[in-house]
């Protein structure tokens, strides 16, 4: 500020700034003003959509699982899907293996292999098979009762959820001990 005053430009700048528009806009003056460096481009609406969609793809996705408190409601839901998928993958895997290599995956071979496993591996593997089976079965029944319109409340969801967990635990132990 004091700079302009010492040089004596203060009054000249003030005059240029506050002078009426026509005076500032004289053609001779305009050529002195630096041209804007930003270029605009005219686009068709479709091209605009393409740019918009490209931007959407580059958008960061917001965190979903990690921002929620782990709760019986949604954990039970995703575990139902995971256990069901696991059991189905086992069925599909075995059936395809038998289809393409019937002698390798014959019942005699599988039983012989299972019998040769150490006792603790048998217990672990039975648990890995029994727990998802029990959970998916009981939770499936829970879903079927929901489909009839019963227990469709927060309290109902929790009560049936804990019932499923209890039944799963008991059944898993019983199946492993079988």
């Amino acid at each position: 500020m004091s700079y302009t005053r010492t040089i004596g430009l203060g009054s000249a700048l003030r005059r240029a700034t506050f002078s009426p528009k026509p005076v500032r806009n004289v053609p001779a003056f305009r050529s002195v003003i630096v041209r804007r460096s930003i270029q605009t481009q005219s686009l068709k609406p479709e091209e605009g959509t393409v740019i918009l969609n490209t931007q959407r793809l580059a958008r960061p996705s917001s965190p979903h699982f990690t921002i929620y408190q782990p709760q019986l409601t949604w954990i039970g839901s995703i575990v139902h899907r995971v256990t069901g998928t696991g059991l189905s993958v086992l069925l599909y895997g075995f059936s395809l293996a038998y289809l393409f290599a019937p002698s390798t995956f014959s019942s005699a071979n599988i039983i012989e292999f299972a019998a040769g496993l150490p006792e603790w591996v048998k217990v672990v593997e039975k648990t890995i098979l029994a727990a998802p089976f029990a959970f998916h079965s009981f939770n499936g029944l829970r879903h079927l009762t929901w489909d009839t319109g019963k227990f469709l409340s927060l309290k109902g969801a929790y009560r049936t959820g804990y019932a499923v967990l209890g039944a799963t635990a008991i059944t898993t132990v019983a199946l492993v001990l079988l």
Partner: peptide
């Protein structure tokens, strides 16, 4: 895959236990 699995299960149920 499901079709192939169907054939596989049929084979296993008819030729094995």
């Amino acid at each position: 895959t499901t079709l192939a699995v169907g054939v596989g299960v049929y084979q296993f149920n008819t030729n094995d236990v």
